[in-house]
Design a protein around this nucleic acid. Sequence first.
DNA 1: GTTTAAAGGATAAAAATTATCTATAATCTT
DNA 2: AAGATTATAGATAATTTTTATCCTTTAAAC
Lengths: 133, 133
Amino acid sequence: MNNYTQMLRNHNLKATPQRLAIVDMLYMHGHMSIDALYEVMIKKFSSISLATIYKNINLMLENTFIQEVKLPNYKSVYELTKESHSHTICEKCGKINDIILDLNAIVNTVSTLKNFEISKADLVLSGVCKNCV
Amino acid sequence: MNNYTQMLRNHNLKATPQRLAIVDMLYMHGHMSIDALYEVMIKKFSSISLATIYKNINLMLENTFIQEVKLPNYKSVYELTKESHSHTICEKCGKINDIILDLNAIVNTVSTLKNFEISKADLVLSGVCKNCV
DNA sequence: GTTTAAAGGATAAAAATTATCTATAATCTT
DNA sequence: AAGATTATAGATAATTTTTATCCTTTAAAC
Ligand SMILES: [Mn+2]
Ligand SMILES: [Mn+2]
Ligand SMILES: [Zn+2]
Ligand SMILES: [Zn+2]
């Protein structure tokens, strides 16, 4: 019994094959839109319903198993929750990459300057990746 | 003839009252969702169609008169294009604020480190504003 | 004022997301 | 291991969001 099975059960969620496959796909592909997820899932479960994808994505979001990443000009993608990080997205090829950046300086500046208690910083850097120049 | 009239005409867009009102509302309110915009517009134009809002928002986005701001847990809001800036959003009251931050250090780091040519940096800081602590 | 091209409003259509319902499968209990 | 219990998958409908179409009106050019 793998750790995602256990993790799901700890939240009173049944470890169904569909659910574990979603987690698996997100683990393998990194960032996936609803459509992309449905496309790969239908190959494994020929009769899976799109509603099942939505229901599970929303459930996993509520339980913070996964995170939504909102991107300029693109549809949202979803990823397994991991260490807080930023994203780059290539405007040419659409490739999304994780990047761990130290935003403490900025966060602290804003906290003191604006008296704003920051709990989360979402940063997306758009541009052109090295493969597309 | 105000400057937005001229600006629209320069892009071969007719300066209709509806269009100018949208610009006006965005100027006054700062950041508005489609729904919020429709709500205030219907007060001025009792028979305005929601389609008109969508059509104009999309048109103005294409012409970069306005920008879309994607926020975690909220619907997108739109604002007049101005100097590049970041946003704070209060998780308690939903208030969105502009904040001008120097992201050059980070942008440069990523550019050289990852060979990624950055054209835009979208940063949203979520937390609790001073009025909501 | 007349012309013409674009835009507004009404409405339908399409796309995206959520809700409902029932059979089934996962987990719990014994 | 068998039976009881409960959540969930899948089918489908409903709702919500966004876009397209069509015709009339209006802004801008002449
Ligand atoms: Mn990521
Ligand atoms: Mn802003
Ligand atoms: Zn690329
Ligand atoms: Zn607040």
